[in-house]
């Protein structure tokens, strides 16, 4: 027989209960949303840019955008995503340990 541990939600995840699975699903959904948002911010300009460049016929713009401008943006998107993913995980950890009385380690 299992003795009910202090953290009930954690126990549900460990023991693969239906409720535990629902918790993990919610974490996955929030992480997938963050990933898709970051991917969309990347993909939408990238898909349109070759057409745009083709119509523009201005090599200087291509040099400026592809040669320099895009790299800081990539790092920015990555940084935003990491912050959001870690926030999701912290929120999830709070939810899982939600039953903790204040002051427990």
């Amino acid at each position: 027989m299992h003795r009910l541990p202090r953290h009930r939600t954690q126990w549900e995840i460990d023991e693969q209960t239906t409720l535990g699975a629902a918790y993990v699903r919610s974490l996955m959904r929030s992480q997938l949303r963050a990933g898709i948002a970051a991917f969309a911010v990347l993909a939408l300009p990238v898909v349109t840019m070759p057409l745009f460049f083709g119509a523009l016929r201005n090599a200087t713009v291509v040099w400026a955008v592809l040669g320099f401008g895009c790299y800081p943006l990539l790092v920015l998107i990555a940084w935003w995503y990491v912050r959001r993913a870690e926030r999701n995980e912290r929120a999830f950890a709070r939810l899982v340990r939600g039953a903790d009385p204040p002051g427990t380690p």
């Binding site: 990933g35 970051a38 090599a59 291509v62 790299y71 990539l74 995503y81 993913a85």
Partner: peptide, 25 residues
């Protein structure tokens, strides 16, 4: 071939962003 080939380095870099958001952790 001129600046159109700049998509190569951009793609080599952006691949890591896609890796980060879907796969890394």
């Amino acid at each position: 071939y001129g600046p159109d080939m700049l998509w190569y380095p951009v793609g080599y870099t952006a691949g890591y962003l896609v890796l980060l958001v879907f796969v890394a952790a």
